[in-house]
Design a protein around this nucleic acid. Structure first.
Lengths: 138, 138
DNA sequence: ACAAAGTAGGACTATATTAGTCTTATATGA
DNA sequence: TCATATAAGACTAATATAGTCCTACTTTGT
């Protein structure tokens, strides 16, 4: 996968899964992993990263697990993606000015920067709740 | 690089280089490679791929080399990118339906498909001549 | 005819990135 | 105190990308 990689995909699924649960009861990494087809050890890591970014909260020990820390309407796709992949970039030179010393790249860069901005906006405007609602439709 | 990878970047530079030349005289792969900072052997391969897609034409032997096969206004960024990287995809499931069996991906897919379309349009609307003109500005 | 300057293209190697696993430690509840 | 959890670093595997090597073939000029 390019912009949305496999681990990100796993993570989005996990978040949607949590969003569909009653938030009272924490879900264990194992449950989430099994339900969403994510390798268990990997699910642990991904969930830990979500926890560090305060997208979910964890409780240790028996009956522990993970639950959303915010309402689904307060979480957008962009922050989930960036939690796992880091900043999204269409072309390395957009982020890393040193990589762009060639005159030729500049006009391209301008175009790409515009596209990048539009992409970011779309992703920010897509909230976790949008994904849940849509799910029930089809 | 993500959407535009290094080899694609090399290739765009090579095309811009050719666009800036008088089309009468073929430029050797070696000349292009040196001018644009591309490893020579790699430049050969990239140019060969452009040739197969009829974006450039080659002539063999001494005094041979490559030149654009169409006017710079008749070549867009999208075709250059796809010649090197193949079809652009934001998320694998957009292209490969089998990869998307999970209900959860569907709403995401819809969003991504829209973004993908916009991106494609931008890339198609950017012609090689746009990159040259912009170059002279700065 | 032959040497030099080119492209053509397959096979191979190296590098980087991403995904996944293993292991050990620690916390909690019954 | 045991079973069930998370925490987290180190390691390995898989994949994708970039780059190199080698041989063959073509054209031009002498």
């Amino acid at each position: 996968m390019d912009v949305i990689r496999r681990n990100t995909d796993y993570t989005i699924r996990a978040m949607v899964y949590l969003a569909n649960c009653s938030s009272k009861q924490a879900k264990s990494a194992r449950t989430i992993a099994q339900s969403e087809g994510i390798p268990y050890e990997l699910a642990c890591k991904l969930l830990q990263r979500l926890e560090k970014k305060k997208l979910v909260e964890s409780s240790m020990g028996a009956q522990g697990g993970f639950r959303l820390k915010k309402r689904p309407s307060a979480i957008n796709l962009m922050e989930i993606i960036e939690t796992i992949q880091g900043p999204l970039e269409l072309n390395r030179c957009l982020m890393n000015l040193k990589a762009c010393e060639r005159v030729v790249q500049c006009p391209i860069r301008k175009k790409l920067a515009k596209m990048q901005k539009e992409l970011n906006n779309e992703l920010k405007n897509t909230r976790l709740c949008d994904l849940i609602t849509a799910k029930s439709k089809g």
